[in-house]
Design a protein around this nucleic acid. Structure first.
Length: 236
DNA sequence: CTGGGGAGGGGGCCC
DNA sequence: GGGGCCCCCTCCCCA
């Protein structure tokens, strides 16, 4: 990004001076084409093999060579504190086994719910962006991300484009000079809530970000990082 | 060099 | 599912 344009601080403009965000901000054809999101593109052999490295057991069978005893003790959720006895673990209860963590269920529904809640986080990350390498667990998240490429919200004053309406709203304030967020300590006002929050740190004796070496605190993570990068002397 | 303000981006949550 | 909002973070610039 180039240098930001320097604008007069208190120019009052109508809210109608910027382009309202179109309801449908997704480019219909090219970007959201059927080949963009649909599983056939995403669920390729590479992904499947990465998700189910042992291969072939996705339908429920135990992975060959998998140490089930070692794995099952890990994600027990406290339901079996002791070693399983043959009587308490009938073969029927292990008919459906999670390919990710090897936890066994007596019904397919039980396995499905488990996978949905715990073990398919990676598997559900299956919506790929056409413009970059990012992947998302839901179409909604992907659509939101694609906005950062298409930038559908355009400022009518300067033509700058933003991914989301509220980002544009914040930008409009740089034209209007509106600063709705006030500091209760010094009455200084800010256009952005995050910047007010950062400012509030300056009123605090103990800042939020602390150096582990010298225990000095900083109002911002970036300041702490700078402090650490330039070499903490270890003394306050 | 440090601290702070301004501006903007991305993910997640809630309605 | 989509939009609004919040939170966290980063980068740039300046005193």
């Amino acid at each position: 990004m180039g240098p930001r344009p320097v604008l007069p601080p208190a120019v009052l403009v109508s809210p109608l001076l910027y382009e309202p965000c179109p309801l449908s901000v997704m480019p219909p054809g090219e970007v959201l084409g059927g080949t963009t999101y649909y599983p056939p593109l995403v669920w390729d052999a590479g992904l499947l093999s990465s998700l189910f490295p042992a291969g072939g057991e996705a339908a429920g069978g135990p992975a060959p060579g998998l140490d089930l005893a070692a794995l099952s003790s890990e994600e027990d959720e406290g339901k079996s504190s002791g070693p399983p006895s043959p009587a308490s673990a009938p073969a029927a209860a292990e008919r459906f086994r999670c390919a990710q963590c090897a936890k066994a269920y007596s019904t397919f529904a039980g396995l499905s719910k488990h996978k949905q809640l715990h073990c398919d986080a990676q598997a559900r990350k299956c919506f790929s962006c056409k413009y970059c390498e990012k992947e998302y667990v839901s179409l909604g998240a992907l659509k939101m991300h694609i906005r950062s490429h298409t930038l559908p919200c355009v400022c009518k004053m300067c033509g700058k484009a933003f991914s989301r309406p509220w980002l544009l709203q914040g930008h409009i304030r740089t034209h209007t000079g509106e600063k709705p967020f006030s500091c209760t300590h010094c009455n200084r006002a800010f256009a952005d809530r995050s910047n007010l929050r950062a400012h509030l740190q300056t009123h605090s004796d103990v800042k939020k970000y602390q150096c582990k070496t010298c225990s000095r605190t900083f109002s911002r993570m970036s300041l702490l990082h700078k402090h650490e990068e330039t070499g903490c002397s270890g003394a306050r």
